[in-house]
Amino acid sequence: MHKSINNLWNALFIFLIISSFMEDSERFITGLITGNEKVTLEIYTKLFPKVQAYVLKNRGDSQDASDVFHDGLLYIIVTQKEKRTEIKSFEAYLFVVCKNIWKRSLKNQVIKNDSITLTDKEEELSTFILEQQMHDFYIKKFDELSENCKEILSSYFNGLSYEELAAEYAYASINTVRQRVFKCRAKLIKLIKEDQTYQKIKQWLQN
């Protein structure tokens, strides 16, 4: 009896945490797309230090951090203004987006060799928006897979060999795990192709 009350309290606690994250997410997104100064400042105060710390740790300066944060918020505005989608944790989502923006600009710095390149800010951001929308779409479809497929595929995409996967997930043989990986990948591809968004993405990738 005592144990079941405890479980109930735990469930309620988790529910309240998730609800409060989602409430904040809704409020933050509405504030951003309506240009609410107070909410935008609240987002800045709560979430900028973490993004700043990440950029500073990875070869960036304070101005880079501000630009990354600005572009991250603008990405959310562009993608959420026309069609709202569910974002469970605004903080986690914004951080991932900002991380990707910074990784991308670090990569571009290397590619451009510091030669005189006039950066077209909107061009950069537009390209990023399309790429990130693709990533978001693939992640959404990935989340629709079974737990087992998700575990195996994330290990697989992170470079674990079939041999390591067989050992890790207690499969009888390498062949069995190979077939399982193929089935999960095929399932993911099927889920992606069945979604109308894929037709749109296909066009983005065709010149």
């Binding site: 951003l32 944060f69 909107e122 537009s126």
Partner: peptide, 23 residues
């Protein structure tokens, strides 16, 4: 997308973010 980002509506939203940054 570029045209959208250059529109007055999005430029205003961008300015709003920069204002928050300044404050």
């Amino acid at each position: 997308l570029k045209a959208k980002l250059r529109s007055k509506e999005y430029q205003d939203l961008s300015i709003n973010i920069r204002k928050a940054e300044k404050v």
